[in-house]
Amino acid sequence: MTGIDPRGPRFTAAVTALIVAAALVIPSANLSALLMFIQGAFFAVGAYAGVQYTPTAVLFRRVIRPRLSPPTELEDPRPPQFAQGIGLVFAVVSVTGYAIGPVLLGQVAAGLAFAAALLNAVFGFCLGCELYLRGLRLKERLA
């Protein structure tokens, strides 16, 4: 397993938070749907190809990382990749809400995605990863 610079996913989370915040603030539901669609596409790349391959990760590697000191430790790319998958689910729900309705559904889904992205960007806290064990326990109980 090759580790990744943990600041990469945090940078990605910061950009995610900005895009989703813009979708929430813009008064046009169609534009919000478009922004959430773009963000959803980023999530899809992160979830399926890996967090190292999202546009923000490429930007981080090419432009930002060369200006930073080397990372003190590397991180397993699987937790953030899993979280991108969770993000994708919220983006799909949000796009559906904004494009088809109700708009409130789009806003609430975007709000949840924003909160998770902000937690990751500010505290380095991966909400999707935290919920993973809960999900497993629930799944086993239902099975």
Binding site: I26, Q107, G111, F114
Partner: peptide
């Protein structure tokens, strides 16, 4: 307008939860 309210609630919830967790 609702979007701004949702954003404000999300900011407060995330910061509150993050600070709580940090302690």
């Amino acid at each position: 307008m609702t979007g701004i309210v949702v954003l404000a609630v999300a900011v407060m919830a995330a910061l509150g939860f993050g600070l709580y967790r940090r302690t």
